[in-house]
């Protein structure tokens, strides 16, 4: 580090640094409406319903932690605005119906606390405000290597995960029109679910019946993002209201 204070855990991992962003708890995002799952590729197909949540803040960055359960959850779309951030999320049960969930939002501190400890970066900007709102502390970290779908995580009272997800097209392509090169596939999204202390990265279908056009005589290949590594950061949201 270049400046100030840092702390490590017993295994040498960095847990606090004046060079970083000392996020503090802001509150839960509020439910806005149900809406069709976002379709960034604008392919043809029928989308399932997801849920839009909103947190009012002028912060430059908001980290959303989604309460984990047996449902498959994740953030499908982030929409930053000047005075609020929206998250279109999925939390699908086994019938692929989006269930309500708690989203715990952390933001960088906007001012030094009235008491406690403030840390600043080398450029003089506020890094940590310890003593006001609850600081972000990770209570679990799960690295998913490529093509790995389960990891064991600590037992937490109210586990919540930072919302990674990735798009995914069913590699089981069906050639529906050889003369025009049309192939059909369904769209899937990856999310997290928790059973006991086993964290799964699972997939759920969010778009049905996409049509893709490829050059006649060619194959679309596979779009399987499960072969890509990802990392889940967990918190214990117990006490956050």
């Amino acid at each position: 580090m270049s400046y100030g204070l840092q702390a490590e855990n017993p295994s040498g991992g960095l847990v606090m640094s004046a060079d970083g962003m000392g996020m503090v708890y802001l509150g839960k995002a509020s439910f806005v409406q149900n809406e069709a799952a976002p379709d960034f590729a604008f392919y043809f197909g029928t989308n399932v319903q997801f849920k839009r949540y909103r947190i009012t803040t002028t912060a430059a960055i908001v980290l959303p932690f989604l309460a984990l359960s047996a449902n498959i959850c994740g953030v499908a779309k982030v929409e930053p605005n000047a005075t609020y951030w929206d998250f279109v999320v999925f939390n699908q049960n086994t019938s692929n119906v989006c269930q309500p969930l708690d989203i715990y939002c952390f933001v960088p501190p906007s001012s030094a606390p009235a008491w406690g400890l403030a840390l600043y970066r080398a450029d003089g900007t506020l890094s940590h405000a310890l003593g006001g709102s609850r600081p972000l502390m990770f209570s679990g970290l799960a690295d998913f290597p490529a093509s790995t779908y389960t990891r064991t995580v600590p037992s937490l009272t109210i586990p919540a995960v930072l919302g990674f997800s990735s798009g995914y097209i069913d590699p089981s392509w069906v050639l529906v029109d050889p003369e025009s090169g049309f192939w059909r596939a369904d769209g899937y999204v990856q999310g997290f679910k928790l059973t006991g202390t086993t964290l799964y990265r699972s997939q759920i279908r969010f778009r049905v019946g996409d049509l893709y056009e490829f050059e006649v005589g060619t194959s679309p290949g596979s779009d399987d993002y499960t072969a890509i590594p990802c990392t889940a950061y967990l918190i214990d949201a117990n006490g956050l209201t």
Binding site: N9, S17, I61, R134, L136, M137, F138, Y233, G239
Partner: peptide, 19 residues
Amino acid sequence: TIVFDSNTAFAGVPADFFT
């Protein structure tokens, strides 16, 4: 109440972000 403890925290400090 202890709300942060470097003995039990898992590694991870948000360092940067971008849109």
